[in-house]
Design a protein around this nucleic acid. Sequence first.
DNA 1: TCCAACATGTAATTAGTTACATGATTAG
DNA 2: CTAATCATGTAACTAATTACATGTTGGA
Lengths: 185, 185
Amino acid sequence: MPSAEPLPVSDLGGALLGLLARGPGTGYDLTRQMHRPVGYFWSAQHSQIYGELTRLEQDGLIRGRDVDGAGPRQSRRWSITSAGRRALHAFVTTPPPDRPTRSRLAVQAYSLWLADPDAARAMVQQVRRRHVELLADYAHEDAELGSPAVGDPEFGNAAALRMGVLGAEGMVAWCDWVLEALERG
Amino acid sequence: MPSAEPLPVSDLGGALLGLLARGPGTGYDLTRQMHRPVGYFWSAQHSQIYGELTRLEQDGLIRGRDVDGAGPRQSRRWSITSAGRRALHAFVTTPPPDRPTRSRLAVQAYSLWLADPDAARAMVQQVRRRHVELLADYAHEDAELGSPAVGDPEFGNAAALRMGVLGAEGMVAWCDWVLEALERG
DNA sequence: TCCAACATGTAATTAGTTACATGATTAG
DNA sequence: CTAATCATGTAACTAATTACATGTTGGA
């Protein structure tokens, strides 16, 4: 009998399965797609991705087929299997472990009190600019999206994007809070 | 001549220096302090902390003195050196690298479209509860804090806490957004 | 002709987690 | 007497980054 429990996957594995659930692709494709919009929240180098794909294949969650591509080597086109879909199902509905979100910026904030105020202001202003830019990118993506139904793959994009917007708005608000405090001295 | 550039430190190194800048402590102390409020944003096991402390000592950023503690072994009390303070200065005012914040929840969100709506709702509700609890913890800490001046160590606590509040509020808003979308079907 | 994009892989290193190991003191 | 806390360390492993390596095709 087949095991009832689907195989657990790593966070990167979940990201890759999430991409392949929308359609097959090569390792190279996946590496590029680890940009907008999954890549807003997860990144990986191709070296890590190729390794993870091999592991997912060994677990039977994806299947690779050789195709001849433009490069010097054979290219492999990966597709998700039904076991992979089951594993992805389990992955998305399992509450994430309750560890603190790692934020280097928060670690810096914790020691901001001993920084030179001008240097602190410059750093925070740069962070602010970056998040304002991010918000503009998100707005672009959002404009092409509308309000997809929950069963539509686009709903996943919208949900991830929404999280990005709320997070970036929070960061801008935080920067303003710090800048005001530095103003007051 | 002494080098003009202070030694770069890792994120964990920055967190530990940030704690030691407020006063000396043993590895055990630091492990416990990697809870509120730095630990809201960075966590580490003692195994990693002890190793990092050794590295910081080799770089001359901290200094350890043997004291006899309650345990079976000699205890070491660590203090930050002036080189350590310089390195921490540089650490806090260097804009963090522009990599995406890793969010497993966002990766899950990206594939939420193929989840069973009831399972999705349960997951999101649990995440929401967790962040509401976090907000209550933050409010507690905040109440004891007031509005410290920028040169006061407490200002670091306040800044980190502020980031936590804004982040958690964003997460609750995100959960509500998803729950509403699931309601509408 | 040179550079970018295509396309895949390995090697070396650093960061982080989990598990193993020890042994004293104190509170219930 | 038992469990928790004190207090430190190592070992084994997984995750992630950086660097090394190869070789084609298409456009400026």
